[in-house]
Write a protein that binds this DNA or RNA. Sequence first.
DNA 1: TTTTGTTGTGGAAGGGCTTTCAAGAACTTA
DNA 2: TAAGTTCTTGAAAGCCCTTCCACAACAAAA
Lengths: 344, 344
Amino acid sequence: MAVTIYDIAREAKVGIGTVSRVLNNSPKVTDGTREKVLSVAKKLNYQPHAFAQALARKRSNTLSAIIPFFTNYFFIEVLQGAQETLVSLGYDLIIHGVNSREQMEEYLSKSLKKGRVDGTLIFSLELSDSVAKEFLEKNIPLVLVDTQHPKFTSISVDNFEGVRIATEHLINLGHKKIGMITANLKSVPAKERLIGFKQVMQKNNLSINDRFILSSSQTKNDGFSREAGYESMKQMLQQNSELPTAIFVSSDIQAIGVLAALREHNISVPHDIALVSFDDIELSKYFGLTTMRQPMYKMGELAVHKAIQLIENPGTVLSSETFTPSLIVRGTCGQNPAYSFPSN
Amino acid sequence: MAVTIYDIAREAKVGIGTVSRVLNNSPKVTDGTREKVLSVAKKLNYQPHAFAQALARKRSNTLSAIIPFFTNYFFIEVLQGAQETLVSLGYDLIIHGVNSREQMEEYLSKSLKKGRVDGTLIFSLELSDSVAKEFLEKNIPLVLVDTQHPKFTSISVDNFEGVRIATEHLINLGHKKIGMITANLKSVPAKERLIGFKQVMQKNNLSINDRFILSSSQTKNDGFSREAGYESMKQMLQQNSELPTAIFVSSDIQAIGVLAALREHNISVPHDIALVSFDDIELSKYFGLTTMRQPMYKMGELAVHKAIQLIENPGTVLSSETFTPSLIVRGTCGQNPAYSFPSN
DNA sequence: TTTTGTTGTGGAAGGGCTTTCAAGAACTTA
DNA sequence: TAAGTTCTTGAAAGCCCTTCCACAACAAAA
């Protein structure tokens, strides 16, 4: 049986209340008793019992994170950011990986009420109204990462700004005929990136050729997949005799498919066509992709801070923060001649 | 305030004990009362309070997993296996990603005593004696995955068998002059894979040319890195005028480095040199690597089952299970002509 | 000296559950 | 019908903590 505060109280000849006060750094304890208690606690190698504490305090010092497994590298980095901050703040992390929105809802409906966690982080998954309502009703702190909802604090990436930087990079390199390959337009980021692209082109007085703009009809991963990228590029090659000199692709994973399609047609990157994409997943460096990097670690970190702020400060107004992705120049845009493809 | 068993008891006009018994499927309750309680519980949308339960039962239905972040893809897959099994069994998972053994020990020393988890899973990290002692003393169920210790249940991969399959695949393809590039020999898998390789060569009456066998002196990731692979291959190229016709590389990530070095020298894979490696990380398919796949998902799954068995059945003897990796034939071994490199 | 005010302290209550215990209800059996 | 069993049930105790309340001890003010 583990050591309890009763053991300490007996040994130190004080009351359990005093022991608890000492352990919680309450100021109203004499230095003498404090030392006495502390030394006994150390001698007995006391550790507070997490559940008893949680029960009494009505606080568990635990957060849950719901992350889709399929986000892969994003998953790990963001998790790393979240986890390390959490540890430094004395919290634990219950993680729940899911593969779909349905799975998330199922999990939430079961776990939410158990009072096991003080707050929740949801990554990349769109919030359904029913879930949103439940969080609101139960007043459980919730932070959204890489997804948004008007009623909750969220952390996301500025797609418009990212696209602007990417596209202007291409423009500054002298490209005028620029195409875009995006994912399934039902997905919010796919749509935003396309709209952003058109805006930038217009702002720079460049004409938009609709034949150079393709979206995907695939539903698996909303078209953010290698296959989708491959198909889109194939299609562009079929439909056109003349090609753009540069293409902005809405994700790295699609860009890898695009590269494969181009290679099949012996079209050299970046010589014949330059490429810039979005995400900077782990694969990107191996393929030499010039891309827009999302500060994943930072996002995890900030998510935790926001969540804890919400917990410790229930009145906090919801705040949505936006990160600007940064341009990572590698081989596919042609600016960096030292960068061979696939890269070293 | 949440609904408690007291609310149910009052509403259903029974005692709290009865409510608890119904909720825990105790047989000694009449069908009549059972239904009554159940219907009230449903009506009030009751959810048991996890901490109160844990406190009373002295069981938390929670496992903690300690996984090094740097294992990347392994991390995700194995986690997925663990997590999904856990959910199906009604357990929660506290995960703790670490970057080193020191970090792991620090975390353990703090968290172990809190009685927060019923058992622990440790992945890929070698157990120090002090930590081992602590687990033993406190009698906390522990399962080791991808690492071993004589006193604990573990799940690992049969390196010898994996190497045998890989190397004999090369031999069956007609190769006789086979080299090996391994990682830092301080790491157990690196060493085992090398020893295994030599055994297989001998068993097949093939001569081992020491000039074709390289290990890495790098310490970062124990030499399981792209850079290490690149360096090793460079070195082999420098030292030899004649090269082996096939190389077994101790990990995929190194193989990617090897590929880069070979490309620089215009040596074609698999035409001039065939390659087989180990792990089947996510990258592998994009590089068309023929490799030995570890059943990561399965390992996570089994780890959980073993841990829970240990928890629910404290007398269980420790059992160590070994998985045999399976050969994934892609482009780099030359057997699969349809597989271009980098692959489609 | 008495009164008022501080400060430190012990212990009960409470958090929500499981489990034990004793007693009442419902059955047997003679 | 009485005595003896067996079931079912309500309520108390216990899990380990935090926090509130009341009181003791002492210092300062009257």
